[in-house]
């Protein structure tokens, strides 16, 4: 076995293919549990919305659809860059190609957080924090915005962790200690990133789209 492959191999795996299979299986179990975590929040949203349909429409109309749609586009594009990085790693492309795709992914993740920051600032200016002097009269609107802050906040936390993981691969991949070609870490990081994207895809129509017509 060649020395570079040896440097990627961890106990107790006999070869890289088994290690890759186990790592991918492990991250998929983690992703399934993450789906359940966000599933609980979305269920809370569903139950509250069934109880307060008109307040949820009115509250969702107050969210900023421009920021929301732009951020969805940014995150979908970041997933595209991440998929390229993982495929380049798997296909033993030149490390500079893998690192460029990873850097683009992390940069788009940072752009998402920056846009979200501007949106949060606007929300606070409009009095959409569900406490004290909340801007909307309907009682159910507070429920919507409580869920809005929790769901988007937890999602942003996940994305921040993702940026850390991708950034680590980008930076350390340039040094002698981390080989990006054929590295299972690239695939595992990619799968996590895509899940964070998938969760946003589902949150987008729940948060930004209701109550726009009429």
């Amino acid at each position: 076995m060649s020395a570079p492959v040896q440097s990627l191999l961890r106990e107790p795996w006999p070869d890289l293919a088994s290690q890759r299979e186990a790592a991918t299986f492990g991250i998929w179990i983690f992703l399934a549990s993450e789906l359940l975590f966000f599933g609980g929040l979305i269920l809370a949203y569903a139950v509250c919305r069934i109880g307060h349909p008109h307040a949820f429409m009115a509250a969702a109309r107050e969210t900023d659809i421009v920021y929301g749609t732009a951020n969805t586009a940014v995150l979908l594009t970041s997933s595209f860059a991440m998929a390229l990085a993982a495929q380049a790693s798997e296909r033993e492309a030149r490390p500079i190609v893998i690192r460029a795709c990873l850097a683009a992914t992390a940069a788009l993740g940072c752009a998402f957080l920056a846009i979200k920051g501007f949106e949060y600032a606007d929300d606070l200016r409009k009095g959409l924090w569900p406490a004290g002097d909340f801007a909307l009269p309907e009682p159910g609107a507070r429920l919507f915005f409580a869920l809005y802050w929790v769901m988007t906040g937890v999602h942003a936390l996940h994305l921040t962790i993702g940026i850390g993981l991708v950034g680590r691969l980008t930076i350390r991949g340039g040094g002698p200690h981390l080989r990006l070609r054929d590295n299972p870490q690239a695939e595992v990081t990619a799968l996590y990133w895509h899940l964070v994207d998938v969760i946003w895809i589902i949150l987008y129509p729940l948060i930004y789209l209701p109550g726009r017509a009429g």
Binding site: M82, A190, H194, L195, D197, I201
Partner: peptide, 15 residues
């Protein structure tokens, strides 16, 4: 429904 199609695309091709 559109979100489910988008998530399906990401899962099938990117994941």
């Amino acid at each position: 429904g559109i979100a489910a199609i988008k998530a399906g695309f990401v899962a099938a091709f990117f994941m």
